[in-house]
Structure formats: structure tokens, C-alpha cells
């Protein structure tokens, strides 16, 4: 398996505080990579720079490189908008737009210049099917998306991310605001999606990492402590700190 995202000696500061320390990681394509670690360990920060959402925070300083498909994403010549089109994101709190279900999904494709009702209809249907929510919403596509339940909203957000045909999907604790049933639906969905997409998921839920991820990265205080096959990280961690964390001694 080839790495689709490579971080090389990545350091990041929020003002004076260093949030990421010399991160080196190669994330394999078409698999699920879980980022775990206690709050404030840098895993969410790492996730957000992969599609340059950190650009929105003016005090961030970055040293080092991240390569996406061999291209440095911090290069001046990189078009952030097309980078974000390739690397989609699902947020912690479901955040559908206050528009109809249809318009939520069609928003991305429209932004990227896709016109014509038939094509948009097709994209909307396929995206909703891929996100396993089509059957629940197909009769009310014109209704406001905010009327859906939290779990449905989150799957809608996944469908919205899929609609612009990304290669990578970043998920920032996508189930932390959801009930167990909705959570398991999202987990099943992630397992289905990894055939076509690379998924990187930040999670506080260690069982979730075990259930769905192929590889796990353990972050602590801004450092990447250990990265490897999920089974090995959880059954046979190399580092004492990883073992302490996954056995629940802190965090």
C-alpha cells in the first residue's frame, strides 16, 4: 500500500505554544487511519492541517512538510480550494447548511461549476446512497436538512463531502455527539467507504478505533508516539505510554 499523505518533520505552533513536535507519518491509501490520544495531544490539529483548515487561524506557524500525492501542500502554487476538494472533512458536530437536503448535497458540485439538473440529481442520489441515507430521505429532499436527527445529519454531512468526489475524508470525532445506534451506522459506513476513499478519523473512543481502523496513530503532548497496525498497537504496543493510554491508565 502506498502512502497518500506523508508528513515530514512537521512542527506547529499556536503563537508560542508548540502543538505538534516533529511529526513523521505516512498514511496509506484506501484504508482507515485512526488518530488517538488524550485531549490536547495534537491529533485534531494534525487532522485540520491536512486540508489547510488551519489557514483560518492567523497565529499558526508551521515548519516541515506535508505531501499529498507527492505534492507539498504548503507550497505557494497549491490551490487550497482544489486541495480541499480532494481532501474532504466531516466535523465533530453535524453541521448541515440551513437549506434543503438536496441543496446541501448539491452545494459542493455547484461551487465547482457543475450545472444541469440531471447531473446534479444524479450526484445527489449517488452521494446519499453512498452515505447510506438515501432510503431515509429520498421522499423529502426538498425539506430543510435541520429537520433530520443528529445521526442523519452527520450521514448527510458525509454525503455532502462525498458529492465533490474527494480522495481523502478527514473525520474529526464524527460520532462524539451521536447516540450508539447512529454511531454504529457511521462506523459501518466508514468501513464501506474505505474501498474507495482514504479515511483519517480522530476519535476519543478506543473501541471505535479497534472496530474500524486499519492503522492507529497515538499522539501525546504534540508528539506522535507510535504508529502502526491497529491490532498491534492495541495488543502489543511498543511504547509504555501507548500501553498506559490504551489500558486506561490516563486520558
Amino acid at each position: 500500500m502506498k502512502g497518500i499523505i506523508n508528513a515530514k518533520n512537521l512542527n506547529l505552533w499556536y503563537g508560542e505554544t508548540q502543538a505538534l513536535k516533529n511529526i513523521n507519518i505516512e498514511i496509506p491509501e484506501k484504508s482507515i487511519t485512526a488518530l488517538i490520544g488524550p485531549s490536547g495531544c495534537g491529533k485534531s490539529t494534525f487532522l485540520k492541517i491536512l486540508n489547510r483548515m488551519n489557514d483560518l487561524i492567523p497565529i499558526v506557524k508551521i515548519k516541515g512538510d506535508i505531501y499529498y500525492n507527492g505534492k507539498d501542500i504548503f507550497e505557494k502554487s497549491i490551490d487550497v480550494n482544489s486541495l480541499r476538494r480532494d481532501i474532504g472533512m466531516v466535523f465533530q458536530k453535524p453541521n448541515p447548511f440551513p437549506m434543503s437536503i438536496y441543496d446541501n448535497i448539491a452545494y459542493g458540485p455547484r461551487i465547482h461549476g457543475i450545472k444541469g439538473k440531471q447531473r446534479l440529481d444524479e450526484i445527489v442520489e449517488n452521494s446519499l446512497k453512498d452515505a447510506a441515507i438515501w432510503d431515509e430521505v429520498k421522499d423529502r429532499l426538498k425539506k430543510n436538512a435541520l429537520g433530520l436527527s443528529g445521526g442523519q445529519q452527520q450521514r448527510l454531512c458525509i454525503a455532502r463531502a462525498l458529492a465533490v468526489k474527494p480522495k481523502v475524508i478527514l473525520m474529526d470525532e464524527p460520532t462524539s455527539a451521536l447516540d450508539p445506534i447512529s454511531t454504529s451506522k457511521i462506523e459501518e459506513l466508514s468501513l464501506k467507504l474505505k474501498d474507495k476513499y482514504t479515511i483519517i478519523i480522530v476519535t476519543h473512543n478506543m473501541q471505535q478505533a479497534v472496530r474500524i481502523s486499519d492503522n492507529t496513530a497515538f499522539f501525546l503532548l504534540g508528539e506522535l508516539i507510535e504508529f502502526g497496525k491497529t491490532e498491534e498497537i492495541f495488543s502489543n504496543p511498543l511504547d509504555k505510554r501507548t500501553e498506559n493510554y490504551i489500558t486506561g491508565r490516563f486520558g
Binding site: S82, L83, R84, R85, G88, F91, N95, F97, Y107
Partner: peptide, 13 residues
Amino acid sequence: PKEYEYASLALGA
């Protein structure tokens, strides 16, 4: 809510 704007930016808008 900022979340709406983040969602839009993350789609490449």
C-alpha cells in the same frame, strides 16, 4: 454559526 462556513470552505469553496 462558524460551522456552516467551515463546512463550505472544507468543500473547496
